[in-house]
Nucleic acid binder design. Structure first.
Lengths: 257, 257
DNA sequence: AAGTGGTCTAGACCACGCG
DNA sequence: GCGTGGTCTAGACCACTTC
């Protein structure tokens, strides 16, 4: 009864009504929920499942693909299909302005970054608008992959007027620390949070399946003077990140934009 | 050159390297970006595309499925495949505690709700924990689909101690208004925001493809006394909703939990 | 070399929608 | 009724991992 192959044996019987791949998907999902399969366990090969359940491999793949997309399973080319490890989610407050580096360090997580891009460019129209640059000004771009405990968590792409950050290569782990050292530390920011499905490129960087859900955050940070310092687009893994916000009742001043 | 079929003709030629379905996907994506195909346009049938590009229908479906999942295309069974309408996103502030109803009305959107469930139940363990109920207390559950301008925007599932809301069927459009009338209007709330891929059931309710990204929000609302009034889980369409938050620098009190 | 997932095919039938 | 997408098949070959 605890035999793994037994999970798939009855798929084709069940009172008809649902498509085959849905029934197979549910059978696997249930096995994971019941604990018959635990995180890290390997599933039988697609061909074996197809044989056990007496259905075609294409149909097996459809069921598995769905579960990969839902984050229940992971597939490794040439290696096999496995139950996804349970990801403990990380939280970040939405009421304080903190840097990723500080935030993770406070949690005792081992953080590192991989640089994706650092350089000075001519501003895009969007950057000109948001940062308030003239067309002959320059903008520093700093893009990196944020990694905590060897798990890629987020992609950050920041644009800062070259006036505030003339040399992006001098940026250390924390962009905020660098800005503070230069006397232009932001004191206020507006964030816009949304959800989207990851494209191939970003999914690859974050080590999840394309189409996985991501939290996308656009942040505009302000100096005390009201001038915009930086504009950052971040993409967080949906399975690894929670944002926490505290709200208060009131018709008083809210968020801009 | 603006002939729709021409989009697919050269797919099989292109310098090899990428899988066929990826090349086809890019061809369609490009056509949408370039404006050769505009929102609302119908694509040729899967069979026609397969013939035009001289590839199998299964491969065409794989390319199309990817784009449906990314929200570029929508498919209607028995009808056809279409370029997805551009969705204008709705914003909600994360610094004020507002009700969905008020929020949409302020934007001049025509709002309505469909009740999914209203009733009094024995509390689940989670509800007992969160609402601070004893096991013999009762809980009112109120679930509905929120619709703005005929587009389903969100699913809200609220749990309120029966002490505060003995008759969930007396709830009007705004739960907050009902609570206020009963003298238990929340003044503070903590929200947890995350992203996930929609399962079949919720995707169906929100009229998007299963696997589409959603913003999930868990909210716990408090009375002035500090007592918990309600616990709500909401699922927002990722393509239709933005949350906006304003942050301030400081190590002062942040969010709980 | 053997086994795994990744891609692709040609053809079939079903379920839905629309005129 | 006809065309659409939705499901399913049996079989093939490629690319990658593991031994």
């Amino acid at each position: 009864m605890t035999d793994v192959a037994a999970i798939f044996a009855n798929v084709k019987d069940a009172a008809i009504g649902a498509p085959l791949y849905v029934r197979l998907r549910k059978a696997i999902e249930d096995a994971v929920k019941r604990g018959t399969l635990v995180p890290g366990d390997a599933l039988p090969s697609e061909r074996d499942i197809a044989a056990s359940a007496d259905i075609s491999r294409v149909t097996v793949r459809k069921a598995i693909q769905d579960l990969v997309q839902l984050g229940v399973l992971v597939q490794r080319h040439g290696s096999g299909t496995f139950v996804a490890p349970r990801m403990e989610r990380v939280e970040q407050s939405l009421s304080r302005l903190t840097s990723f580096t500080e935030d993770m360090a406070r949690r005792g997580l081992d953080v590192r970054s991989v640089w994706l891009d650092r350089g000075v460019y001519s501003p895009s129209p969007e950057e000109m608008m948001t940062l308030g640059l003239s067309s002959d000004a320059m903008v520093s771009r700093v893009s990196r992959l944020r990694i905590a405990n060897d798990t890629p968590l987020a992609i950050e792409r920041a644009s800062i007027s070259a006036e505030f950050l003339p040399d992006p290569n001098a940026t250390g782990a924390s962009l905020y620390a660098t800005l503070e050292a230069r006397g232009c530390k932001p004191v206020r920011a507006v964030q816009r949070i949304s959800a989207a499905n990851l494209g191939e490129a970003d999914a690859g960087l974050l080590d999840v399946a394309p189409g996985s859900a991501s939290l996308n955050i656009e942040r505009v940070s302000y100096l005390p003077s009201g001038k915009v310092v930086e504009f950052t687009r971040s993409v967080y893994r949906g399975d690894a990140y929670d944002f926490v916000a505290e709200l208060r009742l009131g018709s008083a001043e809210g968020a801009a934009l």
